[in-house]
Design a protein around this nucleic acid. Sequence first.
DNA 1: AATCCCCGAAATTTTGAAATTTCATTGCAA
DNA 2: TTGCAATGAAATTTCAAAATTTCGGGGATT
Lengths: 224, 224
Amino acid sequence: MKQQTPDILQQMRDRLIMAHYRLGQKLRPSEVAAEFEVSANTIREIMLRLSAEGLLDYEDQRGFRVVGASDRLLHEITEFRIVLEQCGVERSIARGGIEWEAQMAAAHHKLSHIEARIRRTGDVVGVLKHWNDAELDFHLSLMGAADLPILQQSFRTVYARFRQQIVSPERSYAHREGNIIEHQRILEAALDRDVAASHDAIYRHLRRNLMPEPDARSEDTMTA
Amino acid sequence: MKQQTPDILQQMRDRLIMAHYRLGQKLRPSEVAAEFEVSANTIREIMLRLSAEGLLDYEDQRGFRVVGASDRLLHEITEFRIVLEQCGVERSIARGGIEWEAQMAAAHHKLSHIEARIRRTGDVVGVLKHWNDAELDFHLSLMGAADLPILQQSFRTVYARFRQQIVSPERSYAHREGNIIEHQRILEAALDRDVAASHDAIYRHLRRNLMPEPDARSEDTMTA
DNA sequence: AATCCCCGAAATTTTGAAATTTCATTGCAA
DNA sequence: TTGCAATGAAATTTCAAAATTTCGGGGATT
């Protein structure tokens, strides 16, 4: 028995993000432990960490459960994600140099290569992990010059929770062709050092995951 | 042996925030376990969760360590905290009603009561926990109408890490009289629904924890 | 003197089982 | 029939010990 906790932790994270388990499904340490051929306690520790990241729900004496599908939750995660990304690009535009631009271009190149391949072959599942990693890298590269690691770390966990909600069998995988264009728009705006355009491009990229706004004109905004 | 993990988790969190352990100190599960009279494994689980919150450092096979004091880290935490708070107030101003205003006023009232008492008696340690809770409540109330629980949760953990860095024996406890005025300024700006003034008041409240800026005029911003 | 290697002590990680709590089912009474 | 209590099975939490890894101190070789 060697040290395999880090591996298993990452594998579990991937599973939760890539819909290996159903949303809302109960997850028993003993069952998962059997899959990985380790003891239940080892898995329990891993699951406690994953609940701290927001990928699992945990209640005392009641065990673990994959976070459930929820339009409201997806809306909140998306809003927060937009905030972090807009903040990240804005700071990067202010600080970043040629190095930053090069990293964005590189990340976008890899991403669009994978996206083109998906459009061609129609196979999403086979390269889903690669696409996930590439999209995360691209969005991280946007805030790569923000000089605020804590922002990137925060983004990572929010991004994971976002994917968890999006990549469920119920929802479409969201590999629409729009994505390719939207990513390009984001890249161009960032390279142009145009803060407003960047904000807008990010918003447009994510807005379809927001819930319809409650009518702003209604009186009861100030409910007591 | 009853269920006491939630208690111990909260106590440990308080200890880490209130300088019960030194920053950077090594923390052995077995030793802490002896203090609380539970087994080492129980504490280990708690510590794993606390490292996910960023209050402990954890390295495989090397155990746990209280996060060390670092000007750079405090700077980053502060910058991120400012981002979250400014975002929170801005959204609250847009959405909040009379209920929100009342909650801010209430939280500020409690906080200034404690701060006045501290100024009078000079005793900080005795009411440090109360002050912490009150200040957190106040800052949370600023974003109370933002309608984004995920933002509040994120702020809670960042605030905890901020306190951990600030409330160390080395640094002054930072219970300067300036605090009282600054809190008042923040409250007034929020009640005035003045976004710019709110942003400014929050920045002024926290800026002394930022590191001096590198000279913006220097050439090597674009270091390769 | 400096470096490397080996060994023992101490700490970390994993395990399997005991203790406790929750959950569902059945039986009893209103 | 409905509601409640009791019971037993299953799951969770805690524990203590075994297995593994790290850390540090000689001792031999260069």
